[in-house]
Simulated scan of single mutants.
Amino acid sequence: MLAVRVLASLVVLLTGSSLAHAQSTAAADFHAKVTALYGFEPHKLPRAEMQAKSSQLDQFWTAVKADPSRNLPLLRKELENPANSAFFFYDGSKLLLALSTDRSDQTLALHAIAKADLHGIQSADYVRTVQALGSKGLDTREAAFRILAFPDFKAFIPQHSLTLGQDYSLICMLFPMDETLFVADLATRLATEPEVRTQKSLLLALWYAVTPAANSAVKAFADNQGKPAEATAYAKSLLDRTTRLGSPSPSSAQSLREERRKVMRRPISDEALIEFDQLTAKLIATR
């Protein structure tokens, strides 16, 4: 009996060792494939070469989707690996989102997306993806703030012939969330941001927040003689807009904020932004 137990234990040990080795090999092979496929940035490739790469990436997506139980753990591990390319963090995140609706996977994808080089991806897809995840209740701050490094950022929404600059792209990605989650971050970034266009984006987002802390940040910036004149003039124009907007509203501030969030959780459109403006005017009038 003792010999049988020893033999059984040995079989289990060898089986476990073989399984671990197989998993390690699979992870190494998957990593090698990711490195080979994604070791480039799209905007740096000639058109013909990019088309060839697109075909290879389509094949990779098809292969991963064919066996999600095997490939999902490998994909997650690669998205957590800081050594991978900026383009992989975006494209790999989109693949993860196509395969899984698990909240932890959505959170992982949102974190990885924030590492993308925005020169190499479709800006409208970036904004829509982040906004959609925010609409599910996820924290979009990291990914939304990524565009602040790109003052000339623009996202074109063809279905509505709508072009969003850096300012409204930021707003679309942040305002599905409760304003109290990001006002302090906006104010902190504004205090150190040197680029005028980005200062104006931050100021507009703070103005839309309609909270005491946000208003104080806009006013402090407007009164700061050390800041660029163009940006302080813009801050003053926002403060002036506050005094002119709105008429008494029977709705409570809380209900108006909830309604704004619902509007900003809808797919991005000019109609949604118009409603957002109207609700903001009513919110200002409640103060």
Rank of each mutant, 00 (worst) to 15 (best):
L7P: 04
A8W: 11
S9R: 15
L10Q: 13
L10C: 13
L10T: 11
V11I: 15
V12W: 11
S18H: 13
L19D: 12
A20V: 14
A20K: 12
H21G: 14
S24H: 11
T25R: 15
A26E: 11
A27M: 09
A28G: 07
H31S: 15
H31D: 14
A32N: 12
K33S: 10
K33Q: 15
K33N: 05
K33Y: 09
V34W: 04
A36D: 07
L37I: 03
Y38R: 03
F40M: 05
F40G: 01
F40C: 05
E41V: 00
H43L: 04
H43R: 07
K44Q: 12
L45Q: 12
P46R: 08
A48E: 15
A48L: 10
A48V: 05
M50Y: 14
A52Y: 07
A52P: 02
A52I: 03
A52G: 08
K53M: 00
K53G: 02
S55I: 08
S55G: 05
L57I: 06
D58W: 09
F60T: 06
T62N: 13
T62E: 12
T62R: 12
T62D: 14
A63Q: 14
V64K: 05
V64Q: 07
V64P: 00
K65L: 04
K65R: 11
A66L: 07
D67R: 10
D67K: 09
P68K: 02
P68N: 00
S69W: 07
N71T: 01
L72V: 04
P73E: 04
P73V: 02
P73D: 08
L74G: 02
L75F: 03
R76S: 00
K77C: 05
K77S: 15
E78F: 03
L79Y: 06
E80T: 08
E80W: 01
E80G: 09
E80M: 12
N81R: 02
N81V: 09
P82C: 10
A83N: 11
S85D: 08
S85L: 03
A86E: 13
A86Y: 10
F87M: 05
F87G: 01
F88Q: 07
F89M: 06
S93M: 08
L95M: 06
L95Q: 03
L95R: 04
L96K: 08
L96E: 02
A98Q: 13
A98K: 09
L99W: 04
L99A: 04
L99E: 00
T101Y: 11
D102I: 15
R103I: 13
R103G: 10
R103E: 14
R103A: 14
S104T: 14
S104D: 11
D105V: 07
D105Y: 07
D105P: 00
D105F: 12
Q106W: 08
Q106D: 10
T107R: 14
L108W: 03
L110C: 00
L110K: 02
H111R: 15
H111C: 05
A112I: 05
A112E: 00
I113E: 03
I113Y: 04
A114C: 10
A114L: 07
K115L: 01
D117T: 01
D117F: 01
L118D: 05
H119A: 13
I121C: 06
Q122K: 13
A124D: 15
D125K: 03
D125F: 07
Y126C: 01
Y126W: 04
